[in-house]
Amino acid sequence: MMLITCPWCGPRAHVEFTYGGDATVARPAAPDAVTAEAWLDHVYLRDNPRGPHDEWWQHTSGCRSWIKVRRDTWTHRVHGSGPPEANLGGDEHR
């Protein structure tokens, strides 16, 4: 059972959280300014890497904050976490 650190509540078992998918996919700030294809890419396409992955989790059984977590999808190791605006480090870790 993975241990995820909520920036507000501290380390908690992952079952307290709800997974929310890839955090590198951002909703276009001005949806009308992008092409239809770019919009649908954002809705549907994912890098789905094997390895470090920035992802959203919501602390649903805790403070209900959405947080950003960098977790390895191959080892399940959590490398770091922070609030949604957090930059979790270098680009080599997506």
Binding site: T18, G20, W56, Q58, W66, E85
Partner: peptide, 13 residues
């Protein structure tokens, strides 16, 4: 609820 919280906290903070 989770949907609204997601947009409030992540997309339009």
């Amino acid at each position: 609820m989770a949907h609204l919280e997601r947009y409030a906290q992540i997309v339009w903070p």
